[in-house]
């Protein structure tokens, strides 16, 4: 079941003349959805990201792991320019989405964030009904037809594996839902504006194990249609759901590779120490 089409929303304002695309050099034939080159980010004097070069493949889950303060969330936020909101943040280098530099001055940041949606650690539903939580984004993007909105609400709640649990109380407050349900609602809310990339920052860390497994199953479903980048402290979650895993430390991307390689035989000793819990 695909989410309702929202044809009348302009997808992007960037011009297509400046396209750049890369193919992974591992011969896998995968498509690179996002890539970063020589990416550096500073918060004031603090150097938070150091020379990050990375390819994010389409329709895969890329997990980013690393200790607190290693830069993984900062990196995630740089993929849809959320760091723009932090006054002291300065960025050098580049991030490309479908071959287009998202830090170009003429990029429409709102359109970018529509294509690259984000789910946060704590579920943050709006103080309104379940229905209105989902329809809020499409309405903001210009959809007024109620039948259309109903369609979007149903299809995205189904895509977020929440429909059966809430279909009889769509007009109740979102705060009546459990934590795990609220998080799936937030995922549905992101899906409602038809993104291409989902950035997930610790999406299950505030949830109990059953809700966590539901979110993980959902992520695996979602990667069929979306490109997912997942930041998690829980490396077992990374190993369960992701196809590729990157390890961040002190603002650097120490190592990125196929998830099984990272967890069975990492190349870098620092990665090895971290995933074996032998850090410091």
């Amino acid at each position: 079941m695909s989410p309702a089409k929202v044809e009348d929303i302009p997808v992007t304002t960037v011009d297509k003349d400046d396209n750049m695309s890369v193919k992974p050099d591992d011969g896998s034939g995968k498509k690179v959805k996002i890539f970063a080159r020589a990416l550096n980010l500073y918060y004031g004097e603090s150097h938070a990201l150091r020379d990050i070069n990375v390819d994010i493949y389409e329709n895969e889950i890329t997990a980013l792991i690393g200790p607190s303060g290693c830069g993984k969330s900062t990196f995630l936020r740089s993929l849809n320019r959320m760091n723009d909101l932090i006054p002291s943040a300065r960025l050098k280098g580049s991030v490309y989405l479908d071959g287009i530099d998202i830090y170009r001055p003429d990029i429409d940041v709102v359109a970018l964030r529509k294509r690259v949606g984000m789910v946060f650690q704590k579920p943050n539903p709006f103080p309104m009904s379940i229905f209105d939580n989902i329809s809020y984004g499409p309405k903001m993007h210009g959809i007024r037809d109620y039948g259309k909105l109903e369609e979007i609400v149903e299809s995205t709640l189904k895509a977020a594996a929440l429909w059966d649990e809430v279909k009889d109380k769509l007009h109740k407050s979102a705060f009546e839902l459990s934590g795990g349900q609220q998080q799936r609602l937030c995922i549905a809310r992101v899906l409602a504006v038809e993104p291409e990339v989902l950035l997930m920052d610790e999406p299950a860390s505030a949830l109990d194990p059953i809700s966590t497994f539901k979110i993980e199953e959902l992520m695996v479903e979602l990667k069929q249609r979306y490109t997912v980048v997942l930041v998690t402290h829980n490396m077992y979650q990374a190993s369960r759901v992701s196809q590729r895993t990157g390890f961040f430390l002190d603002g650097k991307l120490v190592e990125i590779g196929d998830t099984e390689q990272i967890f069975e035989r990492p190349h870098d000793k620092r990665t090895d120490d971290y995933i074996r819990g032998r850090f410091g």
């Binding site: 190993s239 990492p266 074996r276």
Partner: peptide, 9 residues
Amino acid sequence: QQPMSKDLR
């Protein structure tokens, strides 16, 4: 213990 990497091996 959910061993990883060399511990798992």
